[in-house]
């Protein structure tokens, strides 16, 4: 089968061709369509390429393994986001076992940073957010998903998504520009306490931090 013909097929059909039809080219088409968003989302949540690549691998392997359980109730892309967030959750949890001492260095002081690469500063600040807030903010502000899409991908109510995004943004504002609106993130004093900020584990400790949402934030398995 020609690649050009495969390009016209739906994601679901590509998965089926690959799994049962013995059409390895279907994988290439599917990867080309989705690898950037999966890797990009994982990178912004986990903060490094190695983990993002690992998570991406889990996602695409998961796509073919769980293909039978995907029932078009949600868009394929949303399902992919869901697999990605879950893979990232696993990684973040594993990473959280590492020592955290150096992470308090992340954002020395806003004045010192002013002249360095803003992207690094933002990445450092993102790492301090609890997993749920970070992934919600990434999906909204970096990936451009709607509240509804984020709710579907993380399996929570839209109201919860709204709250996570607000808390995440407020915490980031408190870290990046503490003087601007002091009332925004009272939990994060300017300069950051030496003990580290909430959820400051490498890659983020899931559920850490004082603004943790209700338990069971992320479903471990991904039944569509």
């Amino acid at each position: 089968m020609w690649i050009a013909d495969l390009e016209a097929l739906s994601d679901e059909e590509l998965v089926r061709r690959f799994v049962s039809g013995g059409v390895p080219e279907a994988l290439d088409v599917l990867l080309r369509r989705h690898r950037d968003r999966v890797f990009g989302l994982a990178f912004r949540i986990l903060g490094n390429r190695a983990d993002a690549l690992d998570a991406s691998q889990e996602v695409f392997v998961g796509v073919f393994r769980k293909a039978a359980s995907f029932r078009q109730q949600s868009a394929f892309t949303t399902w992919l986001y869901r697999l990605t967030v879950n893979a990232c959750y696993d990684h973040a949890r594993r990473r959280s076992r590492l020592p955290v001492a150096t992470e308090t260095m992340e954002v020395a002081s806003p004045d010192a940073i002013g002249r360095t690469d803003d992207r690094l500063v933002i990445a450092g600040a993102m790492r301090k957010l609890p997993f749920e807030q970070r992934s919600a903010v990434v999906m909204r502000d970096i990936m451009g998903l709607t509240y509804e899409e984020i709710a579907a991908a993380t399996d929570v109510a839209v109201g919860t998504v709204k709250s996570r995004i607000a808390r995440g943004r407020a915490a980031l504002a408190g870290i990046l520009a503490p003087g601007l609106a002091p009332g925004l993130a009272p939990g994060l004093a300017p300069g950051l306490a030496p003990g580290g900020a909430p959820g400051g584990a490498p890659g983020g400790a899931p559920g850490g931090g004082e603004h943790a949402d209700q338990p069971g934030r992320l479903t471990r398995d991904t039944k569509p």
Binding site: R35, D36, F39, G40, F43, R44, R49, A52, L53, S56, D118, R119, I122, V137, V138, D141, I142, A166, R169, A170, L172, A173, L176, A177, L180, A181, L184
Partner: peptide
Amino acid sequence: LEGVVRSLKGLPEVRP
């Protein structure tokens, strides 16, 4: 909050 959103939107897309 708007400043945070703008900063995040300004991040480059990271591709494999």
